[in-house]
Design a protein around this nucleic acid. Structure first.
Lengths: 218, 218
DNA sequence: GTCTATATGTTGATAGAC
DNA sequence: GTCTATCAACATATAGAC
């Protein structure tokens, strides 16, 4: 039975790889032609496959978008997680996470638009995909609470207002950069270069009265 | 000759009205189906007109988008101008203008997406339309300089950084509100309700050291 | 899981009669 | 300026042979 098992294994591995290839192609298409330019036909074309065959992997165009949304979430999660690893809780993690997120968005504009704007009429991420999105928000909330609890920030940082303003600042930088200078790198972009200053502005609002050195910039 | 003149007058007035009707219809379509859902066919359909006839008014789909972009600029300009009228220069105008802009964006999501995001692949506003956009930025720059010159804000407010951060904050609120709660009113939206707090955050960054009462909230 | 064939729909844009 | 007619693409999705 060993050979049967390994054959099935190879089969599913091959299938998984085809799916990844399809998502790669889809990302490229969105990068080149905008999110609205994505189509099953074009993805199939780039895979050297007939369009109906692609339906064996994605049951509809919406399903393809959902897979891309999920991929975007996983990628941002990985980028943020890697960036905050071994950093102390609170402000340092919030700062590093925000920077990582902005860099990722500038370098992956296609997926970023899918995550941060609403470019596809009628498309909403599925329930489970959306749940993952909520988890990310919960992480931010936790770090804000840690910052408030440890005195790095005022108690007001552990509120909904602070959480929402955090997302406002991040999405503001990302939106302006992607809309006005789509091609620029994170280092060169007129808006993405202001990432640290934007975060300074945000954290200053919740800085403790005393003015400690709780928020050292790297 | 009087009757000829007035006939031509009526003709051009009628033409202008048809164009306005077409733009109204286009706005409605974008509101209902997203910016990408706009098509010449659907606009013509709603006007009770055959699709080829619409080409007498707009030479292409891109031309229609450009007219919509220009309309959006004119509308925001009118909203902002009305809001800052009779307000003293500097911070009061910056605050009132930003509020008016955010309110307008929430109430006109279709045009706002066209102005603040980049939802149409391959579409860029024409040179003259884009020039109007630059004019609006120049106005903000002027008010920031006025605020810095009169001591309402620190000298740092008269820099590119301050100008860009101003747009970051505004577009951040707008983007988050439109992407996450598309239907909500300005008063009810979780993000648009934070407009004043977001502006507080911004102006605090450029507040003079002394801490004057130069930034009274309405 | 791949293919061919096909149904069915949409679009942008042009030609030319009236 | 309006219409009919039409072209040429393009799309999503399904049926069914192999």
């Amino acid at each position: 039975m060993a050979s049967t098992y390994s054959q099935a294994d190879r089969r599913s591995a091959r299938r998984a790889r085809t799916i990844e290839d399809a998502l790669d192609a889809a990302e490229a298409i969105m990068r080149e032609q905008g999110v609205g330019g994505l189509s099953m036909s074009e993805v199939a074309r780039r895979l050297g496959m007939r369009q109906p065959s692609l339906y064996k992997y994605f049951s509809s165009l919406h399903a393809l978008f959902d897979a891309l949304f999920a991929r975007g979430l996983a990628r941002t999660d990985a980028a943020v997680t890697a960036a905050i690893r071994r950093r102390p809780p609170g402000v340092p993690r919030l700062r590093a996470g925000a920077r990582a997120l902005m860099r990722w968005a500038v370098e992956n504009p296609a997926l970023a638009q899918l995550l941060y704007w609403r470019p596809v009429p009628g498309f909403e991420p599925s329930a489970e995909t959306f749940a993952a999105s909520r988890d990310q928000m919960a992480t931010v909330r936790t770090e804000l609470a840690a910052a408030a609890g440890s005195g790095q920030l005022r108690a007001a940082a552990a509120t909904d207002e602070a959480l929402l303003l955090y997302t406002v600042v991040i999405s503001g930088v990302i939106s302006q950069q992607l809309a006005n200078e789509p091609g620029a790198s994170f280092a060169a972009g007129r808006f993405s270069r202001l990432t640290d200053e934007a975060l300074d502005m945000y954290f200053a609002r919740y800085a403790p009265a005393g003015g400690t050195d709780a928020d050292p910039r790297p």
